[in-house]
């Protein structure tokens, strides 16, 4: 059971961070279907750094640096999306899709120039066996503080900070206004362009961070794909109805689905059901997404100015 919950944490943290990233962009009125590409590019930058630094310095500090670099990488690609969709008033879905093509291609291209294969290997060395004192807490201790990765703590911290920023700061208010009524925001003297640029850059940074949070606990090498996590994050966002508080629970739900898909052969409860082929377990997260979305009632409360380029002269 504890193993299951721990695995669930590893699978849901990237979803959480990336979905929060998507929220920033979409709340400000910019559609972001580039999350998948941003994740891949962020993870690529971070892990390329780990690959080059291997054997020189060690310890958790390196991982923190890698996470910062991953965020910067995501931000760089996010800048392209912001430029197209805010400055150039381009179609945001097309720009996002283009980034989804560019990011994995660039990653594989560079990977093949620096390593013999398409993969960038990194040594698994970031696991924390147990955190003293805290791991003695019943239930939570073993789940959160044994065989843990700091990526988990970073992800949770990011969520808490984002929660505060979106709900109770001046920037959060402007963010929401920019996605609902950009013209009234502009008329109160705030630049919509600036708000949208900032949000898309935050979105890129978080998606890039999410990319490395995805790879570190579950893999030993970078391959230029994140199994559709960026797209799943969009599903999380839609299902949460763009409400940041709901995102965390929904991420856990999808994380659980992924966990069952990945570990079904070693789960006690499911092992007896071995007549179900493993392909069906792998389908589970995606089928669950569709079912859950088609039964969530009510009109879609997407920000009302989403996807519409802001044009001052249209007031």
């Amino acid at each position: 059971m504890i193993f299951l919950l721990q695995q669930m944490l590893f699978f849901s943290m990237p979803l959480l961070v990336v979905a929060v990233g998507g929220l920033f962009s979409e709340k400000s009125g910019v559609v972001n279907i580039a999350l998948e590409g941003l994740m891949i590019f962020g993870a690529f930058c971070g892990i390329l750094f780990l690959f080059f630094i291997e054997g020189r310095i060690d310890g958790q500090f390196v991982l923190v640096l890698a996470m910062i670099i991953a965020s910067a990488g995501g931000m760089l690609l996010g800048l392209m999306h912001a430029y197209a969709s805010v400055s150039m008033k381009a179609n945001q879905a097309i720009s996002g899709m283009a980034l989804n093509i560019i990011a994995p291609a660039l990653a594989v291209f560079v990977a093949r120039q620096v390593t013999p294969s398409e993969l960038i290997p990194f040594r698994q060395r970031f696991v924390i066996r147990e955190v003293p004192i805290l791991s003695d807490i019943p239930i939570i201790g073993p789940i959160l503080f044994e065989r843990a990765y700091i990526t988990t703590y970073v992800a949770l911290t990011v969520f808490v900070i984002a929660l505060i920023v979106v709900r109770s700061t001046r920037f959060g208010l402007r963010l929401r206004a920019s996605g609902e009524h950009p013209h009234s925001l502009e008329s109160s003297g705030v630049s919509v362009q600036k708000v949208r640029y900032t949000s898309v850059l935050i979105s890129g940074a978080l998606a890039g961070l999410g990319g490395i949070v995805f790879f570190i606990p579950t893999s030993g090498e970078f391959s230029a794909q994140v199994s559709g996590y960026g797209f799943l994050a969009i599903a999380v966002l839609v299902f949460s109805k763009w409400n940041i508080k709901r995102i965390i629970w929904i991420s856990f739900f999808f994380g659980l689905m992924q966990t069952i898909a990945a570990t079904h052969s070693s789960l006690v409860y499911v092992r007896d059901l071995d007549f179900i082929p493993s392909e069906f377990y792998k389908m589970l997260p995606y089928v669950a997404t569709i079912i859950v979305l088609s039964f969530s009632r009510g009109a879609s409360p997407a920000p009302s100015a989403i996807g519409i380029p802001y044009d001052v002269s249209e007031r």
Binding site: M80, A84, M88, K89, A90, N91, I94, S95, M97, A98, L99, N100, I101, I102, A103, P104, A105, L106, V108, F109, R112, Q113
Partner: peptide
Amino acid sequence: GFAPQVIDVMTGMIVYFSALSLI
């Protein structure tokens, strides 16, 4: 000595630039 994925990068950039088409 170049990986063929550079073609995909170009493809993506072409799509990206076509999004900026109007300007």
